[in-house]
Design a protein around this nucleic acid. Structure first.
Length: 573
RNA sequence: UGGGGCGUCGCCAAGCGGUAAGGCAUCGGUUUUUGGAGCCGAUAUUCGUAGGUUCGAAUCCUGCCGCCCCAGCCA
């Protein structure tokens, strides 16, 4: 709460300056839309949303909110063969989860089918559209190429009456799929291929997830999109760069029909390194079982990030920080991780968990004694209070926290050295017990200093190392899933054209640890709960958790300067 | 070879004719009962490039170079 002062919010709002806001500011100044700002987020329900969509959602809803405007959620559902209710439900859930509210403005392009049909009729009546009997292959041939103009369809000059009759019969279902289309009559020699008599209606005898079998002709996206924006009174229709070439076409429809004219503004979509950002490719990973589903914690989907433990706050902060521009860019995933750490550092309760347990026997600690020690829940947030954790003669520490031959700058436990067990006592390593055959270290014999209760003494002793631990007798066994990048290339799509992006999947993106030991308070943790495993990272309880058998996802590790030192000295050698 | 866009630090990104914000990453230092967090500091004489206009250009003009998108009855 203390962090959410209006002041801080203002600071952030000031930072938000981008070319789209500049345009809106200008429009507001000139009164172009009578001071209205009305945006929309228009997904097609043919897959789950990913973080690239989050950028767009934050942009559209964020602008509406900052300018006292409105933002609609509209499904552009013009292709029944690829769309499903499952996707519309997941999209609604994800937008809501991100914290945005479309209130009563949930729309579907399919709501406008009748209106769009009337528009198409109007174009036909005014000689601006015609029914074409060419097959798809022929239409393609007639379209020409990038450098050569197209040829006019032999059906281009059909009389209006005949077009009307045919179009009405298309709607009535008299013709087979693909046998005829309705086309806009524009210019077959336009250098913009979108203007070469684009198809605006096709016959598709498919059941639509909302309109069922009411229709057997469906408008093309290019026809439906701009007109839907117009119908909704959108002022600023924000979309991605690839639609820049389509804007003249949308404008053409609007002008011919003489209807309200929104302004389209294009921005560069988000790319993140070490992952892919296209619904088609993500669906491919799901369909081919390279991941467990759309919500696999390695996926850049909103549902994947959510399951992984990403917070909506961190995603929205990320969206603010990456900015909006027309330059195509690939953002370093380290920025996303930074936003997450910053958020979780402030809020996540600290807890102790040992991922790779090494048993420590404290030889001078009374056999049957158990102490309840106080542990602070979050040093960043004193109000989070403390909790009790049990301490006894045998504890587990992390294998990495002990080295028989400590390298330079290693200041954790090693023979003869002393470290602090967080919130507990100083212990000193007296003896290393090994498996006689394998030489593997089985356990450590240590002594503790009773004067150091709580992990501190006033004698000026310098104890540099601090380890997390759990009491062996009280620990709960847990499964922990560690995640790495989904791909091992920074840009899996940029490699030579004919290589499949799936070749670059990181085979080590998932590591499951089955024998982790966590403090007893975590036994019945609710799925979705965030916490920091002290010194290791932020983790989130997975829905696979069962009472007494928690499962954790590592959301992101803590920054690890020891790992950095180690890497550096290794590289130096 | 047609059309539409884009090029400011390793990655994002402000800047809109008055002399290069900010964030991430990186590197130092400091602090610390998380090698976490925090704090302090460093990091583009230069804005793809070559010319031109101007007292003055990342910002205006011209040429060149590079990258992206467009030939679905997908969105």
């Amino acid at each position: 709460m203390a962090n959410n002062t209006p002041e801080k919010k203002e600071e952030k709002a000031v930072e938000k300056t981008n070319f789209i806001r500049n345009i809106i500011d200008e429009d507001l100044k000139t009164g172009k839309y009578d001071g209205r700002v009305h945006t929309r987020f228009p997904p097609e329900p043919n897959g789950y949303l990913h973080i690239g969509h989050a950028k767009s959602i934050c942009l559209n809803f964020g602008i509406a909110s900052d300018y006292n405007g409105l933002c609609n959620l509209r499904f552009d559902d013009t292709n029944p063969s690829k769309e499903e209710v499952e996707y519309v439900e997941s999209i609604k859930e994800d937008v809501r989860w991100l914290g945005f509210d479309w209130q009563d403005r949930l729309y579907y392009a399919s709501d406008y089918y009748e209106q769009l049909y009337q528009y198409a009729l109007q174009l036909t009546k005014t000689g601006k559209a015609y029914v074409c009997d060419l097959g798809s292959r022929e239409i393609k041939d007639y379209r020409g190429t990038l450098t050569e103009p197209g040829k006019e369809s032999p059906y281009r000059n059909r009389p209006v009456e005949e077009n009307l009759d045919l179009f009405e019969r298309m709607r009535a279902g008299e013709f087979a799929d693909g046998s005829r289309v309705l086309r806009a009559k524009i210019d077959m020699s336009s250098p913009n291929l979108n203007m070469r008599d684009p198809v605006i209606y096709r016959i598709l005898k498919a059941t639509h997830h909302r309109t069922g079998d009411t229709w057997c002709i469906y408008p093309m996206y290019d026809f439906a999109h701009g007109l839907s924006d117009s119908i909704e009174g959108i002022t600023h229709s924000i979309c991605t760069l690839e639609f820049e070439d389509h804007r003249p076409l949308y404008d053409w429809f609007l002008d011919q029909l003489e209807v309200y004219h929104p302004q389209q503004i294009e921005f560069a979509r988000l790319n993140l390194n070490y992952t892919v950002m296209s619904k088609r490719k993500l669906k491919e990973l799901v369909d081919n079982k390279h991941v467990s589903g759309w919500d696999d914690p390695r996926m850049p989907s909103i549902s994947g990030l959510r399951r992984r433990g990403y917070t909506r706050e961190s995603i929205r902060d990320f969206a603010d920080r990456i900015g909006v521009a027309k330059k195509e860019s690939t953002v370093d995933i380290a920025l996303l991780e930074h936003c997450l750490r910053e958020d979780l550092n402030a809020r996540a309760p600290r807890v102790m968990a040992v991922l790779h347990p090494l048993k420590v026997v404290i030889t001078n600690y009374p056999e049957d004694q158990v102490e309840e020690l106080d542990a602070e829940n979050n040093p960043e947030e004193p109000a989070a209070g403390t909790r009790k954790i049990p301490f006894s003669r045998e504890v587990y520490i992390e294998q990495d926290d002990f080295r028989e031959d400590p390298p330079k700058k290693f200041f954790r436990l090693s023979p003869g050295r002393e470290i602090r067990l967080k919130h507990a006592y100083y212990i000193k390593c007296e003896k290393v017990i090994k498996d006689e055959k394998t030489g593997e270290i089985i356990e450590l014999h240590c002594t503790y200093d009773p004067e150091s209760r709580g992990g501190w003494t006033n004698d000026g002793r310098k104890v540099r190392g601090t380890s997390h631990w759990v009491s062996a007798a009280h620990a709960i066994k847990a499964e922990v899933r560690l995640y790495g990048h989904l791909f091992d290339r920074e840009n899996p799509e940029e490699e030579k054209d004919d290589t499949d992006f799936k070749n670059f999947l990181n085979p080590n993106s998932l590591e499951v640890l089955g024998d982790c030991m966590v403090e007893p308070g975590l036994a019945e943790i609710r799925p979705g709960t965030h916490c920091q495993f002290l010194r290791q990272g932020y983790f989130c309880a997975d829905p696979d958790s069962k009472p007494g058998k928690p499962v954790f996802n590592r959301t992101v590790s803590l920054r690890d300067s020891w790992a950095k030192i180690r890497k550096k000295t290794q590289n130096a050698k």
